[in-house]
């Protein structure tokens, strides 16, 4: 039986708003597809070989927590970039997403360097961008809606026209509340402000990662999990958001 290893970056610190639900979701779905999975917790000092993991996950954290992991993350930057370019599936939520850009602004309005993987920067809004959010995304090959909750001061602006957003905002704020973009997709990496958590209510996105993991190992995932509760929950919140217009 195939075994998949998911690296969880700074599980103690970068774990806000039910982010761990994304891992619970991936692990259960892998199990239901017939595969085993392990979580490889990556924290300070541990120097993991990213090429021996099948996926990398990092959740959001508060300013205080980002400060605690910052130096360590920067020191891991080159390896992470290699893993990303190699097409390892990666999910970065919220402040972890912000860190992928060139710079972000903290609560005291200091501009802090990010990992610089992409040409985007994150400024700070006066008022918090918060609420249920719904997107249209085509990352699975066909158009699908993605639902979640966002809660951020960060206003992320792309400075490179070639960057692809994770989705287009139907209701909510997204990257900055202005240009209609939400998140970012590059190869098998998704960066996004959506928590909620993201994956359980959006099983197509969860399966996007699972298929990408499997493909890299030359495995074809058999199709057909019963996602009726997932779809019910997805549609329940979708109807709620759209009804409020």
């Amino acid at each position: 039986m195939a075994e998949f290893i998911i690296a969880h970056m700074y599980p103690d610190l970068m774990n806000l708003y039910g982010d761990r639900g994304n891992l619970l979701c991936l692990r259960k779905r892998l199990q239901w597809y017939g595969y085993q999975s392990y979580i490889n917790e990556i924290s300070f000092a541990s120097k993991p070989d990213y090429h021996n993991v099948d996926m990398i996950f990092m959740g959001g954290g508060s300013d205080r927590e980002v400060k605690l992991i910052y130096q360590d993350l920067i020191s891991k930057g080159a390896d992470l970039k290699k893993a990303m370019e190699d097409g390892i599936p990666m999910l970065f939520i919220d402040s972890a997403y912000q860190l992928l850009g060139q710079a972000y602004m903290d609560a005291d309005e200091n501009l802090i360097d990010g990992l610089g993987f992409f040409k985007f920067s994150t400024l700070r809004a006066k008022n918090r961008l918060t609420g249920n959010i719904i997107l249209n995304s085509t990352i699975t090959g066909k158009e699908c809606t993605v639902v979640g909750f966002e809660n951020h001061y960060g206003c992320t602006y792309f400075q490179d026209d070639n960057l692809q957003p994770f989705g287009r905002v139907l209701k909510g704020f997204g990257n900055n509340g202005e240009d209609g973009y939400e998140g970012l997709i590059y190869k098998n990496l998704i960066g996004t402000y959506l928590h909620g958590p993201l994956l359980p209510k959006n099983p197509e996105i969860a399966d996007f990662f699972i298929k990408a993991m499997a493909e890299r190992r030359g495995i074809t995932v058999k199709s057909g999990l019963d996602d009726s509760i997932e779809h019910f929950a997805h549609n329940q919140v979708k109807d709620k958001i759209l009804a409020r217009s």
Binding site: G21, L24, C25, K28, P200, K201, I229, E230, F232, A233, H234, N235, Q236, V237, K240
Partner: peptide, 12 residues
């Protein structure tokens, strides 16, 4: 209002 989310949590 969020019965679906709760059911998902219990399922997972």
């Amino acid at each position: 209002w969020r019965s679906g989310d709760m059911a998902l949590r219990v399922k997972y």
